[in-house]
Simulated scan of single mutants.
Amino acid sequence: MKISATIITFNEEENIKRCIDSVLEVADEIVVVDSYSTDQTEKICSSFDQVRFIKNEFKGHIEQKNFAIQQAEHEWILSLDADECLSDNLKTEIENIKSKTEDKFQAYSMPRLNNYCGQWIRHSGWYPDRKVRLWNRKMGKWGGHNPHDRVILDNGIQSGKLNSNLLHYTIASLSAHINQVNKFSEIAALQLFNSKKKPSATFKMIFDPPFIFIKRYILQLGFLDGFYGLTIAVISAQAKFLKYAKYKQFKSKK
């Protein structure tokens, strides 16, 4: 088995070296598809002989990730975001898979451990946050709804489960989280506006946010994550409100 690691980037100078370093031992090639970064992302990627750096206009997370897969040489894809990296134990598990002569699985999921403002979050609905990130590209591709993409496998394809963590350095500060929510809620609202679904925005704005808070903080044990568990619950509720408020605004301008 040979693996192509695919990574999409835009102004990821803070993260990309860590991500690339983590896949060097397990990937037979590394493909970085960049959305015309204006920082040092390209320079950092170009310092690695193993990296093939490609620029492509960004049309959406799903579209960009599928484009990256199309540039890969090998059938097996290891797809990471630039702010993710393999833990040492996860690298060992992937190396063990590569050493097998036969394998009944054509895809593998792995738990993702999220780092929020310097703290690893083990509750709040953020863990184990299992993701399919290693698969035979003949058996599936990226799908879902922007910006919440996911790998969709062909009918009948079951994924094996890896036990070690994919590390996700998701949010560095509260202001970064708020900025991300503002950006992602805009994308989600536009996606909803362009879909066939026509939910009651006002109803969703009133009832969904408190439900999300209770779910994150109480039902998913966010209180065990301390101050940041409370913060995640509040901002998650805000994100839900903004999604439908922006959707309602799009409708009013139609």
Rank of each mutant, 00 (worst) to 15 (best):
A72C: 06
K198Y: 00
S185L: 01
R122A: 01
G140D: 00
D81W: 00
N15L: 02
D208K: 13
Q40I: 04
L190P: 07
K253D: 15
K104Q: 13
Q158M: 12
I235L: 05
I69T: 14
S109V: 14
E186V: 11
N165G: 00
G60M: 07
V51S: 02
R216D: 14
A237H: 12
L230A: 11
D39L: 03
S37M: 02
N194P: 12
W120H: 04
E13Q: 13
K104S: 06
F184I: 09
H123F: 12
S164G: 05
F193L: 12
G156K: 07
L153P: 04
I7Q: 11
F223G: 03
L80A: 10
N163Q: 11
L113E: 05
I69V: 13
E95V: 00
T170S: 02
A189C: 02
A5R: 05
N114L: 11
F223V: 03
I62C: 00
I97N: 03
S236A: 12
S195R: 12
F58V: 05
A107N: 01
E186W: 11
D149P: 05
T6I: 11
G143W: 01
H148F: 13
G118A: 04
Y217I: 13
K197V: 06
D154F: 06
Q220F: 13
I20K: 12
I157L: 10
I30V: 09
H177D: 14
Y127L: 01
S46F: 07
Q71E: 11
E57V: 08
D208Y: 12
G160S: 04
K248E: 08
N136K: 09
N165S: 10
K254F: 09
D21K: 13
I212P: 02
Q71M: 13
C85L: 04
V32Q: 06
F10D: 03
N155T: 02
F227M: 09
A82M: 10
S159E: 11
A27I: 03
M110Q: 07
V181W: 09
L90I: 03
E186L: 04
E57Q: 10
S185K: 01
I206K: 00
N146W: 05
I218E: 06
N89T: 09
L174V: 10
V181D: 10
L80V: 07
P199E: 14
D49R: 13
A245G: 05
H61I: 15
L190W: 15
V151C: 01
A82P: 04
Q71T: 09
W142G: 00
D28V: 07
G144K: 08
I16M: 04
F53G: 03
P128Q: 08
F211N: 05
K65S: 06
S47C: 05
C45L: 01
F227T: 14
